[in-house]
Amino acid sequence: MALSREQIAQRVAQELKDGYYVNLGIGIPTLVANFVPKGIEVMLQSENGLLGMGQFPTEGEIDADLINAGKQTVTMATGASIFDSAESFAMIRGGHVDLTVLGAFEVDVHGNIASYMIPGKLIKGMGGAMDLVAGADNIIVTMTHASKHGVSKLLNNCSLPLTGKGCIKKVLTDLAFIEIKQGKFHLLERAPGVTVEEIIKLTEGELIVNGDIPEMKF
């Protein structure tokens, strides 16, 4: 069975380590905050200028001056700090954020990512995504493995305009956890009940399968 959005987030959360500063993108990555493993502390960075993002506010706590990068109302965790946008991207570009999780339309075997534009259809802009992928060493991309019509999103070469070049090393899809190295995809784990053959069929770029591939554990 393909993973649900929550399960993708849950598997990503297993990659969190105690003391990590983490930037979570909009969509599935945001859900990762709900699955932080017990006993560890992470601090969420929101690129509009907040380190130490808390949970959503109650109706009474809503503050128009306090939002996240998805423009949602949020709260501050204890120990939070506030800063301007240049400072925020100094943290990001300067490599101070330990883990970045973001979505994508396509990735390829060269570690390229396309996530911000579909020419003629969707031209909303890259927001902070280009800075995030250029600045972070440790990035996990979350996405569906293929389109509804079975067209792979793990490609030999991205077809859409790139968000970043050669910067992606890990991809978690609804079917598989994949590492990108030396110009190839490497299958690390598969979603429970999904076969290696199914994953190969929906992966356009070359996929290395080394020995028995374990199922993800939740």
């Binding site: 959503f56 109650t58 009474g60 939002i67 423009k71 949602q72 109302t73």
Partner: peptide
């Protein structure tokens, strides 16, 4: 006016970060 673009809340008695509304 300070208009809010995405009003997201949690129930008053909730301790978790579960969103009532999730932007995609």
């Amino acid at each position: 006016e300070k208009r809010i673009e995405q009003r997201t809340t949690r129930p008053a008695d909730s301790e978790t970060a579960q969103p009532k509304h999730q932007g995609e």
